[in-house]
Every structure is written in C-alpha cells, then in structure tokens.
C-alpha cells in the first residue's frame, strides 16, 4: 500500500547517512594519522561536545542561552574535585561531572522556563556569572583565580595512562564524544525529540496536542546540562587542571558562535562549528596573534549577514564552475 510506505519513511529519520559514517571514520582516522595534533584535537572534541549539548536546547527546543558554560564549568570543577577528594578514576569522574551539571541544570531550568527569549538570555547569563563569581571567591575549594591544581587522573579502566602528548587523552575524549553523540542523535529522532521540535516551532499548538511543554523542556535542559558537564569533566581530566576560565562568559559565547558557523538543529552544526572555530583560531592566531579575535568577529558578521546557505551555495557554485571548466578542457 503506497500510503503505508510513505508513513513508514518516518522512521528513516533515525538512519545513519553515508556522510555521517564517513565523518566518523575520518574522525577515527585522525587518531593514527594526526598524532602531532592530538592536543588541539582533544580541545576540538571537547568544545564540539559542548556545542552539541547547546544545540540540543537551542536548535531542538528553541531555548537560547548565553550561560551554557555554567554546566561546562560545573562539570569541570565537579570532576576535578571528585578526582582530588574521592577517587581519580576517570570514568567515575565523568559521572560525577555529569551528575553535578544535571542537578544544576534541573534546578535552574525552572528559572529559564519562566520567560521568553530575552528573559532566558539574561537568566542563563546571570546563572553563569554567579557561578563564576562563586568559583572565584571560594578559593579554598576551587583554587580561585589560580585554578584547581593537583588533579591527577588514574589510568582509564586501570590500563591506559594519560600521557604528556595527549594521545590517550584524545582517544578517550573522542570515544566519550562519540558515545554521547550517538545518545543525543537517538534522542532527537525519538518521539521525545520530535516533541521538542514541535515545542520549538509552536508551543501553543504543542500544548494543544497534549504535549506537557514545561516537563519536556526541563528534561532536555537537564540532559543538555549533563552532556555539557561531561565536556567540562573531559577538559578537567585531560588537562589535569581546572582553570576558572571554564566559567568565563566567552565559553558560552564561543559555543553559540560555533552553532552560528555550523548551523543549529542537526547536531553536526556544533561539530562543524567547533572545527572551523578552532582551526580559524589556530591559523589566525599564528598569522596575527594580537588581532585574531578581530578576524573571527569579521567572519562571524559575514556569516550572519550573507547567510550560511548562500555561502554554501556560492562555494558549490564555484566548485561546479571549476568542475565544468575541467570537463570542457
């Protein structure tokens, strides 16, 4: 029956596309092929995971946040303190980071859900600023402005010791990233994930078809916070240090920037954005160490004004023309 066939295509949302598989194969290939870049790749994996967590609330549930680093920072400090005071097993540390961030996310979700966009921006920003100041003032616990020192991690699973060049740290970060990405990917194509899209598109109608809007938003906000917390925990563990910078405003802004560069609402935008952001940062900071933020800013303005779609079309157009010429010659 043709109608059945059409409807059965709903579940193909969950199917892995070729481009995705190639992407993750390429990511895996970076382990043996790009050994010299493992430190920066670790950083990319961590900020990409962080950006993906932000995409879950921004791209899927329509919650704009200027303070998502509150959860990144909470996860980082929780993992760092957990390693110092409880046990330095990395995986348990990730759980601690996720749990701390999830609790914080759940508690603050009720503040965030109260208002509309502008209120949300201010509330999220406020929460992150407050946490930053607490971390700064509670120097006895957090190390204050000097950062949290003395984080020494045990080998992963008791076997793989973190090395100075970051090889183990990179594989570890990439695997954790991949696992959480698969979870996030499943969430967004589930009935739960689709109900978030419905809420994002039209909260009035979402409620009118029986979706408990606030419950769903609280749930995704908590999940997103937990994932951001794991990203923070990864940073604490691989750097074996927690800088107060994990709660700095620029981290929230950078994550938003990555989503602007890569696009929201399809999860890979965070990854594309993180890679582009970090690569641009590396190139520009070598080329013009003092002014690289100027160029990042200029590129951002260009992306927003011209539009990602049109840039994409332009690049494809040039590409097609080159191919066309090649064919004619």
């Amino acid at each position: 029956m043709p109608s059945k066939a059409a409807v059965s295509r709903l579940s193909t949302l969950g199917r892995w596309r070729l481009a995705e598989i190639l992407f993750w194969l390429a990511a895996a290939a970076s382990v043996p092929l790009l050994t010299e870049h493992h430190l920066v790749l670790t950083e990319i994996a961590i900020i990409a995971l962080f950006a993906v967590s932000l995409d879950l609330i921004l791209g899927y549930a329509g919650i704009a946040s200027l303070g998502h680093t509150a959860f990144f920072g909470a996860g980082a400090y929780a993992a760092g303190l957990f390693a110092i005071h409880v046990t330095n097993d990395p995986l348990l540390g990730l759980v601690a980071g996720a749990a701390a961030a999830a609790v914080l996310g759940f508690a603050t979700s009720f503040l965030v859900l109260r208002g509309a966009d502008l209120t949300r921006l201010m509330v999220t920003l406020g929460v992150a600023l407050v946490l930053g100041e607490i971390a700064n003032k509670a120097g006895k616990i957090t190390g204050g402005a000097d950062g949290l020192q003395g984080v020494f991690m045990a080998p992963i699973l008791g076997r793989f010791e973190f090395d100075l060049f970051g090889h183990v740290g990179y594989v570890y970060s990439l695997v954790v990233f991949f696992v959480l990405f698969v979870v996030a990917r499943r969430i967004v194509v589930s009935p739960f994930g689709l109900s978030l899209l419905a809420i994002r598109d039209n909260p009035l109608r979402a409620r009118a078809i029986g979706i408990p809007v606030n419950t769903r938003l609280t749930a995704i906000y908590t999940i997103s916070a937990a994932i951001a917390g794991v990203a923070g925990a990864l940073l604490a563990q691989t750097a074996q240090f927690v800088s107060i910078d994990v709660l700095a405003f620029h981290r929230s802004a950078d994550a938003l920037l990555m989503l602007v560069i890569g696009g929201t609402g399809y999860l890979y935008g965070g990854i594309v954005g993180a890679v582009a952001f970090k690569v641009l940062q590396e190139i520009l900071s070598v080329w013009t160490p003092q002014y690289w933020t100027f160029w990042i800013g200029a590129i951002l303005v260009a992306i927003v004004l011209i539009g990602r779609q049109r840039i994409g079309n332009g690049v494809m157009g040039i590409w097609a023309r080159l191919l066309g010429k090649g064919g004619a010659a």
Binding site: V7, P191, L194, S195, D201, A206, T215
Partner: peptide, 28 residues
Amino acid sequence: FAGMTPLQALGVAVSERQGRGSDWRRVV
C-alpha cells in the same frame, strides 16, 4: 509546526496520544 513535515507532525501527535511522548530511546 512550520519546520516539520505533516508526517512528522502527525508522528508527534500520535506518539503523544499513545503515551510515548517521553520515550527517547526508540526512533519515532
């Protein structure tokens, strides 16, 4: 729901009606 197809929108409504709205483990 402007960003969804009718199929997805009906998928949400039917899933919700059947009490699967908070299921995050299964593909819709």
